[in-house]
Simulated assay, not measured.
Amino acid sequence: MANASHSKSLPFAPSRVFVHLTLISYLLLALLPILLVFMNSFKSRDAIFNDPLAWPTPETFSLIGYTKVLGRSDVLMYFGNSFIVTIASLFFILLFGAMAAWGLSEYRFKGNRWLKFFFAFGIMVPIRLGTVSILQLMVDLNLVNTLTALVLVYVAQGLPLAIMILSEFMGQVPGELKDAARCDGIDEFRIFFQVVVPLIRPAIATVAVFTMVPIWNDLWFPLILAPSDKTQTITLGIQQFVGQYATDWNAVLASLTLAIVPVVTLYALFSRQLIRGITAGAVK
């Protein structure tokens, strides 16, 4: 009887099969380019062009790309610059975004709705439209060719989305918990960091992943604001292997493989929190 009832509770649904096939197709579409970059980074130049879809074999295996990248370029410095810019930007985006979201969701004041609309407008308008003004501002502040310029731009770019996502999640925190903390004499600062922030960790992980990827992969602002040799990020540093008439594909593919590792690692570490955050937002 138990088996019969269990089988009745899970009927065959063609729509469910279609959804799974669609998700599998999208997964393959997303992973195939990454897989091609990874396997071709361990092949010789001739093997890359002769059969790019084949796995490396003892005859085609080569580490020449990684040798060039690690031995003949400042790729470690580029990685360091990208890490500094990404981590610093994420820290300030999450800190200021969470604090602003707390103020917008917890306190009611005149202009609250218009302020939310202002931040939503920041999501709709691409920051690159203001590139000329941003460059002029950085020149006036003497911040060109500094990592500080990139951090400031990325913080401004990521704050609107962070505030909108975190404010929606903070609005779902039970008011009884906050009122109980206030009755116990806990100040607002401690309520925010000790009560609210731990409850919205999935949302914080979601914001971190969605913010980190565009910052790490960005080429536009590093090229404009920090193109010097000492401030280049990994995405900009890879461009030295791409020439007008010849491209060192072994070095390019090896650099791309190394650049993908931090993003994949971050997703692997925060995938559970990310899925929880997306699911909670969808259900809500």
Results as ranks from 00 to 15, higher is better:
residue 225 L to C: 12
residue 243 G to D: 07
residue 238 I to T: 10
residue 241 F to M: 04
residue 244 Q to E: 14
residue 239 Q to K: 10
residue 233 T to Q: 12
residue 247 T to I: 11
residue 225 L to G: 09
residue 237 G to T: 06
residue 231 T to C: 13
residue 239 Q to C: 00
residue 226 A to T: 09
residue 240 Q to C: 04
residue 237 G to Y: 05
residue 226 A to P: 15
residue 247 T to E: 01
residue 230 K to S: 14
residue 234 I to G: 10
residue 245 Y to H: 14
residue 232 Q to F: 00
residue 229 D to C: 01
residue 232 Q to L: 08
residue 244 Q to S: 13
residue 217 N to P: 09
residue 235 T to L: 02
residue 246 A to S: 14
residue 232 Q to E: 12
residue 221 F to H: 11
residue 239 Q to Y: 07
residue 241 F to D: 01
residue 222 P to V: 09
residue 244 Q to H: 06
residue 220 W to V: 12
residue 220 W to I: 12
residue 231 T to N: 13
residue 227 P to Q: 06
residue 246 A to R: 05
residue 221 F to Y: 15
residue 233 T to S: 14
residue 235 T to A: 15
residue 244 Q to A: 13
residue 229 D to R: 08
residue 243 G to R: 03
residue 230 K to D: 15
residue 230 K to Y: 07
residue 227 P to G: 09
residue 247 T to N: 00
residue 229 D to P: 06
residue 231 T to Y: 06
residue 236 L to K: 07
residue 223 L to K: 10
residue 247 T to D: 00
residue 226 A to M: 05
residue 235 T to H: 03
residue 224 I to C: 00
residue 232 Q to G: 01
residue 237 G to C: 05
residue 235 T to F: 08
residue 225 L to T: 00
residue 226 A to D: 03
residue 237 G to V: 05
residue 221 F to I: 00
residue 240 Q to A: 07
